[in-house]
Amino acid sequence: MKRLLALASLLSVSAAPLLAATANATHYDVAATWPVSGPGRWDLLEVDSARHHLFISRSDRVQVVDTTSGKEVGTIPGTDGVHGIVIGSGGHGYTSNGKSNSVTEFDLATLQRVRDLPVSGKSPDAMFHDAGSHHLFVFNAKSNNASVLDTTSGKEIATIAFDGNPELAVADGHGHIYLNIESTAQLVEIDAASAKVTHTWKMDGCEEPSGIAMDAAHHRVFSTCQNKVLAVTDADSGRAVARVAIGEGPDGAAFDPATKSVLVPLGKSGVLDVIHVDGANRYSKVQSLPTQTSARTIILDESDHRAYTVAAKFGPVPAGEKRPPMIDGSFSVLVLAPQGK
């Protein structure tokens, strides 16, 4: 009963009304829509700010779009079942290939494949690159663990087991990685240097956390939950700070420290919820920006404060099938920009 009362208190103080009167809150627009060619569903995104490249996972390849023009400038082929893309050090990037249980290393300047690195886990999905340790953490969705790769040697040097299937991760810049465990609604803290779990915290009132972002200045982790809440956790203690009401179908999140905005794309609601950080423990939802149904993942370019999501249109579900077909030529990038920029 005490736990239920505590959660009710969190929701009552944190789920501020839409368009709350929050000083200096930033609102967003869909500044542009860029068509992207070819078939294939999608998952995660990455951005290379230095080269103005947006990377989009597309089933068996990664498509690259120039963020200054919106034009396609390259493709990284042969990434079967690709989910995640990350920027590493030394001018290289990495893709996680879910169907081949491998990681592809590629050159960021030329977009050419460097080498393929096998992982022992099953269905590698999200990834995180830790610049301090030169370790690549590959989160394996179907084996409930992480493969830790040394990016210098290209060898898997450790595995980390979890209680359930890992989702997306974020870091505080001081050697700590925070990871959502979707099936058990846990937040895990990993020490990047030792590649070991240091804390596991249960996120009460959060179902199937997926998207994650972090306000490092306030030591707050934001996890998007399928029961239409944003869970805010104290990264030092694991304490539940707030539960903020959001829309339906989140699969990603981003935080811009310059605008103090948490950006949550909602694939089922077809909106971007913008939540302003009023203080370490105070949050106000200031906008639900119409985007497009299926726009559920996001990446932020902190160099210009623009964020990117992708979406497509779908036809009716055929008899005997579970998923609707994607309409040819409907896939596109949506550019989300602060108003006036």
Score class of each variant (00 low, 15 high):
89 S>E: 08
22 T>R: 01
31 A>W: 00
22 T>Q: 02
46 E>Y: 11
81 G>A: 02
43 D>V: 07
96 S>K: 00
18 L>K: 11
19 L>M: 10
35 P>W: 12
49 S>C: 12
80 D>F: 08
54 L>V: 09
51 R>K: 02
67 T>H: 08
54 L>R: 03
76 I>P: 00
48 D>L: 09
29 D>T: 12
32 A>D: 09
77 P>Q: 13
94 Y>S: 07
80 D>H: 11
47 V>K: 02
74 G>I: 07
39 P>E: 15
59 S>W: 14
57 S>P: 04
11 L>H: 01
28 Y>G: 03
51 R>D: 03
53 H>R: 13
26 T>H: 04
90 G>I: 08
73 V>G: 07
43 D>E: 13
19 L>C: 11
84 G>M: 06
66 D>F: 10
33 T>W: 04
95 T>G: 02
14 S>R: 05
87 I>S: 01
78 G>Q: 12
74 G>T: 08
37 S>N: 14
66 D>G: 09
83 H>M: 00
68 T>Y: 10
70 G>M: 14
52 H>S: 11
65 V>F: 09
95 T>M: 03
23 A>Q: 11
65 V>R: 04
94 Y>D: 09
40 G>K: 14
65 V>C: 10
48 D>F: 10
10 L>P: 02
76 I>E: 03
80 D>G: 09
16 A>D: 02
22 T>Y: 00
67 T>E: 07
67 T>L: 09
59 S>K: 13
88 G>K: 05
96 S>T: 07
18 L>H: 13
65 V>Y: 07
33 T>N: 05
65 V>M: 13
76 I>L: 02
82 V>A: 06
60 D>P: 06
51 R>I: 04
39 P>M: 14
59 S>E: 15
39 P>S: 14
79 T>G: 03
47 V>M: 04
93 G>A: 09
62 V>M: 03
63 Q>V: 15
